[in-house]
Design a binder for these strands. Structure first.
Lengths: 232, 232
DNA sequence: ACAAAAGTGTTTACTTTACACCCATGA
DNA sequence: TCATGGGTGTAAAGTAAACACTTTTGT
């Protein structure tokens, strides 16, 4: 037991894990096995340990509940409504995270709970204030995608221009003209041409690209980027 | 006394209060009257009560320590390093806030501690990780000023174009060409011409402007703003 | 008279947008 | 052969950047 002179809230982390299936933005949810909200879907997350930072905690929970490692993960807001948890005062430090769905093999963590991807516009009823958390995560993702080349973390190492475009479209909830998008994207200098797609498809083989992180980092060092280099 | 099955961190709020003197960005700091860091300067803030949200807590602390009310205040990050407080595990939810220095009469709160403005580039040694907190606050202010017309909250109701320009310059740490800045700013349609400055100065009287919040709000409703309308 | 800030427009370069036809592939 | 997605360039419009001289006022 732990005793304090003043009451302390509980502190949790929650993580909005985004995935992209080439068509839609997806979010990974966990089916809750306990009350409150037993049977509802919720964001992966849990209580913060005393010897870990929030980021470490969020990564640990993600690993425990979904076996996901090596994700891009960034804090975006702390939710502190007094009654957001019916049991006791709980504040949650919320993160969003980005994974390549192909890097993401094993799901269903060790605590028997089901983990499932949902399209961002077809979410089931959610526990706590997780609806609001997800909404804010997407807003933050929109802001961040204009500043940093994080979109590539949602795509496979090699990707088609049309996939990249579709990703920007679903994140920013607007559509782009095909030729102009490609032109501007290529003009960043960050795409390496990896030749035509060798996987046969129903139509003409598309050029594959990959993200040139080396170029990005060297341009960062020489401060060559404007404030919103990816504001498409 | 309050007892829990598992250990809980303490939760505080801290607030980076920005002011603008017409020339430099300033930050309000409190001289600490107690250990740890007795005699050092620190951000206004303190423990979160169980019946208040983080935002309410931050506003209360600001009021208690500096008698400031009615500020623009926004959460930007939660700092969770395990050893950031030498006494015990404390996480802090950090806010930045903007005040007009003319609206800001009474300082020096009820707990005898001194409160003082410091130029952002001439800060004294700071308690805890407050150096880092301030750095991040400024980064966040830079991002936000490009998205929302919050700069006006740092200026008096009526202001000169050169003051507005100087403010953008100190926040964004770059300089602008006088005519282009004014042209672009006026083109937003958000400035009302309030006539020439009647306070005599050492030189020609400048036109005063004020911010037209009504115009801004109506343009928001009709979605007429691009993503970064104030990215100067 | 001079120092300091304020007022004022135009030209050029760059960026963004709109737009249409042909190609390769598998069903 | 048809449906689907992929490849490609140019012209027009709009936005951003560079640039200098005159005015007002107080010292």
């Amino acid at each position: 037991m732990f005793t304090y002179k003043y009451p302390h809230p509980s502190v949790t982390t929650d993580c909005v894990l985004f995935g992209f299936d080439g068509r839609e933005l997806n979010i990974l949810l966990i089916e809750r096995g306990f009350d409150p909200f037993k049977g509802s879907w919720a964001l992966p997350g849990g209580f913060l340990n005393m010897d870990e930072t929030a980021e470490q905690g969020a990564k640990r929970e993600l690993m425990e509940e979904t076996s996901v490692t090596d994700v891009f993960l960034e804090q975006f807001h702390t939710f502190t409504d007094v009654d957001r948890d019916p049991r006791e005062r709980v504040i949650t430090i919320a993160f969003y995270a980005l994974v390549r769905k192909s890097d993401f093999k094993v799901i269903a963590g060790d605590d028997a709970a089901r983990a499932e991807w949902f399209k961002i516009h077809e979410l089931p009823p959610l526990a706590f204030d997780h609806q609001e958390v997800i909404k804010m995560a997407q807003e933050r993702l929109q802001e961040k995608i204009a500043m940093k080349p994080i979109a590539f973390r949602l795509l496979d190492e090699k990707f088609k221009m049309s996939e990249l475009q579709r990703l920007y479209e679903v994140i920013n909830e607007k559509s782009y003209e095909r030729r102009n998008f490609a032109k501007k994207m290529i003009a960043t200098g960050l795409l390496a041409d990896r030749g035509p797609n060798t996987v046969p498809e129903q139509n003409r083989a598309a050029t594959l690209y990959s993200f040139r992180e080396d170029v990005y980092l060297s341009k960062c060092e020489s401060h060559q980027w404007k404030k919103y280099p990816f504001d498409f």
